[in-house]
Each structure stands twice: as structure tokens, then as C-alpha cells.
Design a protein around this nucleic acid. Sequence first.
DNA 1: AGTGTATCCTGCAGGC
DNA 2: TGCCTGCAGGATACAC
Length: 256
Amino acid sequence: MKADVVSGGGARLARAVHGRHITGVRRRAKNILISLGVPSESSGAAATQGVRLVRVHLGMTGKLLFFPPRARAQTRFLCVRFRLEGGGSLVYDDVRRFGGIEVLDQSAWATKERLIGPEPLEPAYRVETLFAGMSASRSPVRSWLLDGRKVAGIGNIYANEALFRAGVRPSRPAFEIDWAEAVRLHAGIRRTLSRAIQLGGTTLRDYVDADGKRGQYAENLAVYGREGRPCPSCEEPIERIVFGGRSAFFCPTCQS
DNA sequence: AGTGTATCCTGCAGGC
DNA sequence: TGCCTGCAGGATACAC
């Protein structure tokens, strides 16, 4: 999604959500999907209108914040404010405005979803899937992991951390990763993501969850952002290289 | 077709 | 102090 934050404009978004109820919230890749229904007295209209979704993507610096009734729902980089029934509010705040909000119906979402790769935490995501995908690509494995069409929801931090756990250098061509490495990478991705989720994510500077709480995974980072600092496993200084326009971090002795 | 790069935008840290 | 450069959690449009 790109600037400026609300695709289709604020007025259209306001009309689309006005008077509706939030009936569910889920995640797919890095998209937060909020389902909207209509209040029960007008449920006849719901059948004709179908399910309406609000898709929120946080980009690099987006925050979706809940404020209870009577709280001051003002933030430094406020982009959008939804006033909720009962006086609370939901605010989208984003310094850089790389993230955004979009309303769409089920079929429009289905079209977008077709381009998104499998969820690595789903039980159905097996080593075979990862290995087969990588074997078809000449990209550096870190770039491959960042490509949401190949596998969903892995960002630069967790790609680097998963590769450290697997003992694989980020710059290695994906097709060159052998089966044993793929097994370790598969486990590395899952452990990294699950642990990070348990700890509420990684706050480098800005990120907070809907309640304003910072994520605690930053303390667990082995390589990301740690150039020159000792590898937690062998004490060798962590190295940083740049490709695909992004920094990659690795231990030169633990990762090959 | 698949891969790499430029770009959207703003703030902040570090060097001089 | 203040100016300048580089860097940042993501995704996509485009050029090879």
C-alpha cells in the first residue's frame, strides 16, 4: 500500500464503515483484516452487501491503537481515527505513511490473497514446501524469504534471525540450500516467529501493539542490528552486508 | 519469467 | 550548536 494512507480517500472510508459493527479480526501475511457487519435490525441488507473488510497494513512505522472511552485519542502522527460505539476509538498513526488502510469486499480481497504465499506457522507448511520453493530460485535466500509471494509475513528482522538459527548465510542463492539446511531453516523460521509473537513482537524504536505496549523480542535478537557485536554463540563479531536494498546481518563463523 | 533497484516519506543518530 | 549523511520494521512499479 502506498501514500497516502487511505486508498480511495477518507470520505469513502468513512461512508464504508459508518454504522457498522466489527464482527471479527484476523491476520493474513502482514495484513490486519477487520470484518464489518451491519447491526442486526438491518440484517437484510447484509446479505445483499456481502462481507466488507477493512485491511490495515502497518508498513514500517504504522500503529493501530485502541483508546478506551474518555482517553485522549491523539497521537503524534495520527492519520485516521475511527470513533467506536460507546466512546472508545481506534487510531491509525504512521510517521512515514508507508502503511495504509483500505476497504474492500470479499472478492477484492480474494484477488489480492491469491498473490500471497503460504503462512509459515500453519501446520500445512512443511519442509518440503520450503525446499521446493527455494530450489526454484536463484535469489539470495534472505531476499527469497522476504518475498511475500513465496512465503507470507516474514520481514527483514525475522528473515535474518531465522537464517542465523539455521546456520545459513543470507546471501546464499536459495536453490543452493540443501535439505538439511532447509530442515533447520524451516524450524528456524517457526521458532523465531513463534517466540517473537509470544513476546509481543520486536520494538526497535516505534512499534507498539493496540494497547500501546512495546514488543520484547529485541532483547533476543542474535544478529539483526548487531553489526560488530559478538555472536551470541561464538563471540565472533557480527557482519553486515547490503543487498536487495536492505541490510543483512550474520555471523561469519556460525553461518555458511 | 524472474531478479534487482528505485521510490514512496519522515525522523533520528552520528560525524564533523 | 548545527548541518549533512545514512539508515530504518514494507511493498510495489519498473527496467533489465
